[in-house]
Amino acid sequence: MFLNSVSSMLQNIRAERNGISPLHLSSIRAMLPLFFVTNRNNYSRWTPVYHLDMLNLHAEVEARFNNEFFAMFQKAGSFNGVWSHMATEKSIIKYSKGNGGIVGLTRKKSALIRCNVTRHIVGHFSVAMKMRSGLVTADDNTHDESRPPSMKRDEQQVIDLISHLQETMVNPFDIQHHPSELVNISTGLKASKEVQESLLNAIDTCTAMIKKFFDSALSAGMSRSFYGPIQRSNIKTFSDMNKKTKLKCRSGETVQGNINPELIFCRALALTKCRDDVPVEKLLSFPIGPISTSLFHDDGTMRK
């Protein structure tokens, strides 16, 4: 399941880098169950619509997409295509919202409509004028993520990630030495029988959820609203194996939840940046371990 999920993600990246429209659609279709299993409702609701729209493109547009015009190539070469929004950030959006653009100039609806309709033309003229005047070069119009320093950084991050997986975690890519039980590759914790069955059957469960959503909200005889709530997957994960603590709300209601000290500490650190009554000194005065550190000496021996 993990390898299939990673493979779908890598195929989606490859489709964008090489401008392969059919591979993009197949990877999107493969990732759809993952949106349902992780309860990403916006992606679950709108990805099928996007996929259907892409399957019903105009013949001329579809032919152009299949001819590597699906992605933006700002330089000759291979595996250097970028997503369309990344390309427009450095061109159309930059010159329409930057210095001399529409932002701060007017809020009139008619002017905004004219700007949106013609901003790609204005951006083209703006780039041409700046290049003729020597203010910018051709490299300035490429996205930062496609430049050699960024690509070198990304490659180093991949090497570091592989090294981290091999040295400190259960390597998920070493298929021959996989444990018989389902384990957390980060901590090595073995899953309980209930969690293991839930995770191993997650794709089948969410495939049934997808079919139910399609039949009820996207079919000809819809029995429910497309904008209605989507059923949660309720998949059991490793976090469900943590000990639950009873908490009493202000309303008097008692609820059970998992208390993660590390998560609470991180959120408290965030509070120190936005609230004057929560200084860092006060936060660090509280122990975050299961046992108070004040019970022990600096060398670890217990106080009498």
Rank of each mutant, 00 (worst) to 15 (best):
M1E: 05
F2D: 04
V6L: 12
S8E: 04
S8P: 01
L10S: 02
N12T: 10
H24N: 09
R29S: 14
L34F: 12
F35S: 13
N39L: 04
R40S: 08
Y43G: 01
P48N: 06
N56T: 12
E62T: 00
A63C: 05
N67W: 01
E68I: 03
F69M: 14
A71I: 04
M72E: 05
Q74G: 15
S78T: 10
V82D: 01
K97C: 14
G100I: 02
L105M: 08
I113E: 14
R114P: 02
R114C: 13
C115N: 07
H120M: 09
V122S: 01
M129V: 09
M131A: 13
R132W: 14
S133M: 13
V136A: 11
D139V: 10
D140H: 11
H143V: 15
S146K: 06
R147I: 03
M151V: 15
D154L: 08
Q156G: 07
L161N: 08
L161Q: 09
I162M: 13
D174G: 04
Q176L: 03
E181L: 00
L182P: 00
V183D: 06
N184K: 04
N184D: 15
A191N: 00
S192V: 02
S198C: 05
N201Q: 11
T205W: 13
I210M: 15
D215V: 00
L218V: 06
S219Y: 10
S219V: 04
F226D: 07
P229R: 09
I235G: 12
M241W: 02
R250F: 13
E253M: 07
T254S: 08
V255N: 03
P261E: 05
F265P: 00
A268V: 04
E281C: 05
S285K: 06
P290Q: 01
T293F: 08
D298W: 02
D299K: 00
T301M: 11
